[in-house]
Every structure is written in C-alpha cells, then in structure tokens.
Amino acid sequence: MDIIERNTRKWFDRAAELLRKPKQEQTTEPPVDLDTDTPNNYNSLPPELVENILFRLDNDSLLACRLVNQQLKSAASKELERRNLLLWTSWQPLQGSWKRIESQFSPTVRVLQTLGKMIIELTLWQLKKVLIHTPNLQVFSISNFRAKQQSTPPTILQMREADGIIISPNLATLRICCDGCELYLVDYLLELCAHQLVNLSVATSSEELLLSLCRRKFEKLKKLEINSFQVSGPFCAIWKGESLTELNYLDILMIYCSSREIDIDDETYMDFIGQFSSTLAHLGLEMAPVSRGCFGYLKKKGIIFSKVRSLTLRKRESIVNWEGTQAKLDVEALFPNVSDVNFVDF
C-alpha cells in the first residue's frame, strides 16, 4: 500500500468517525418522549419518511430542525448536505473576469474543474464540505471569493471546536488570489493545511493576508510565490523563516510604487530574503531594489546564496546596460552559481 493510499484511508477513517459521531450518541441515549401516552411522534418515523418530510422543507426550517434533537439534526444535516452537493454539480466556471484572473495567475492543475462559481459564492460551510468530499485533493486554487452577506466570521478557535480538523491528506499545493475580502476563509484554509503544504502561491492586495501567513508554521514548504500589490514591509519584518527549513524556491514580488507615501523598506526586504540564503535553489524578485543596490546590503552582511542556480529579476523597462553595473557585480558576488540572470518583463 503506498503512502497516498494509506493517507487516504486514514482520512476516510477520520471523516467516518466525525460523520458517525451524532448517530452513535443517539443510540446510547435515545430521545425521550415528553408524552409517553402518545406512541407516535417524529422519532417513530423510519428514516425514509423523515427524509420524505425534510425534502420539502426550506433551508431555514432545516436549520431549525438541526437544533431540535440528535435524530433531526442528523437527518436535516444530511438533507442540507445533499442540497449543497446538488448545487455544486450544476456550477460552471464563470466567464470573463474569472478567465482573466486565471490567465494572470496561470494555475497549473485544477483538480476540481467546476470550482469557478463556487469560489465566487464560497461560504465557510461550503468550503468545509469541499474538503470533506475530496479526500484525494492535491491542489486547491481559489480566487476572488466572496460570501454573499457580510456576517460576523467565526474565529479559528470556534471552527476547531465545532468540527475538529479534517483535511484532504494529499493536499500539498494551495493557490490563493485574494483582494482581502473574506479573509477568515483563507485563515481557515491555512489553519487546516499550512503544516502539510509543499507549494504555496499567494496573489493579494491585502497586507492582512500576508500577516496571516506569518502566524502559520509551514514545516514542509518548498516553494513559495508571493505577488503582493500592497505595502508589505510589516510582513517581511515579521515573518521569521525558522520553520521553512526546506524552502528552496522563493519568488516574491512586492510591487514598488513611487507614488505611495509608504513603501517597503529595502533593508527589511533584503533581510527577509536573506533568511533563506542557505536553502534556496531559485530566487525571483523585482529588479527595482536590485538596481538601487539592495544586494550590496546583503553582500556587506556576508550573505551568499551558494545553492541558487536560477535567478529571475522582473523589470518594468528594458535594461540599457547591465554589463559592468554595480548591480551585476553584486549579483555575481551573492549568487556564485548563477550563470545567467533570467530577466522577465511584468
């Protein structure tokens, strides 16, 4: 039995345990009839008839039934789940904006191909259902999601207390494109899977999202891509990479913008990158700080990226003269094993 199969089996056992729990409690302590002279109440109906009745109820009534007793909770939850699964099967990827985002973000593999619309209308409850029903999920990619109504989000602690942690054991790649709305969904996802992620891509304009990354431990992370369109100094200052001992691919784009009053501090930025000098095999970043001599700061600190074989610099304009510049000399000193710098327009 290979490791994936073992993990999947474990996942199924855990899921079965969670799903079975209410039923077990019911059998150990059956519901009590208030009026024992009346033999027939809701509890006397066989499951198929209860199902027949619940099928007719609206969602609000089903939610009320979940609060009546164990038997009704179990049956109503099943019906609610069925409705959501039915909804999912009819969902189609959105046209237009979704495709534009997709082309910008260039996702590699999307295991759940109909996630498009669900992403837009994702709720925490639906997210949990996706995770519960996809034990073989390896890659999860979500973009620009919204909940329909703004409500008080539950805390991570409340979520954990409510249903325990359950996640597809093979989920190793998470791609997030988020403008900062509904951050609690991302928080929840990260809480569930940060420890097992190998690849993480984040495209965001939200400083808060970046800061939420700082609160997680990514023990297995090897590849990290961050595209941020927001001031990201606090993130670079806070994130300590002690737990990222296996990180060998870092592609970070913190957009510099001269019109902003506050921008990322070069030294903070370089200190952040310098944390990973002993493990990185690939580094990608924006050309602007390099042109300003940021690498010189690292050179003075004696940092060398000896394992880096591939260096990508993103630039807005063509470089007229790279040869003989101080920036080139700094690159050669910091990256002795990089033969050619890969320049990319953005």
């Binding site: 969602n59 609000d60 925490l124 329909k148 109504q149 539950p154 409510a162």
Partner: peptide
Amino acid sequence: EQTRLENRWCVEN
C-alpha cells in the same frame, strides 16, 4: 450551542 454556531455559518449563504 455549537450547532447554533454552525447554523450561523450556513446562513452566510
């Protein structure tokens, strides 16, 4: 109470 909390999440949609 936990079920009530879960219900609140459900009605987000």
